[in-house]
Design a binder for these strands. Sequence first.
DNA 1: TGGAGTACGTCAGAACTGGT
DNA 2: ACCAGTTCTGACGTACTCCA
Length: 186
Amino acid sequence: MKPQRDILPAGPTAASSASSERESTPQSATGTTSSAPRRRPQTKIACTSCRRRKSKCDGMRPVCSLCAGMGRTKCEYDAGPDVTRFAALKTKHEGLQRRLALFEELFRLLSMRSDAESLEIISRMRTATIETDLEDLVKFIKNADLLMQLSSTQSDQTPPASGAPGADTHLPSTSLNDISSLLELL
DNA sequence: TGGAGTACGTCAGAACTGGT
DNA sequence: ACCAGTTCTGACGTACTCCA
């Protein structure tokens, strides 16, 4: 059984009772004689290293004091200096949701294509950068769809040879050439 | 052995959430 | 809008590890 200490809020007073050498921040210097409850000064967001080590981070950029003391030249932060970690995570969450929706749309568009058309799309995907071009790629395929529909609407005005279903999930066999030529227009 | 660095249980306080 | 409860995150304090 370990002897228990009183738990005190961190700051100048608590520091003097626990660790006499802990420095106080300018913010915490106010109200030293007041009996009002002190607030522990906090940085908005701690660097990755300090967070992992659960150590105090002063939030300095590009490198915090603790990391600088260990000879590092740069700290990693999840957000800008004026953004809380929660806000940063929220923004990141929204971004990931947008990306998920795009991937789902891409999956849906691909699953509707013939093998040849899928290969054409995939070959274009290979030249794209997934981080930056995903949205453009989905737009690109959708625009090609739109042009295909316009094209088939025009050709449907001529009497069809047979009662082929007009479902847009089944493109005519020449559609690959059509797509290629239509893509040139985009 | 002691100092430096690390791991982590724990707490404080802010932000968020749901009820009224 | 307000309040109480919950969740999240920064950070304190201590035990532990490593190395000279």
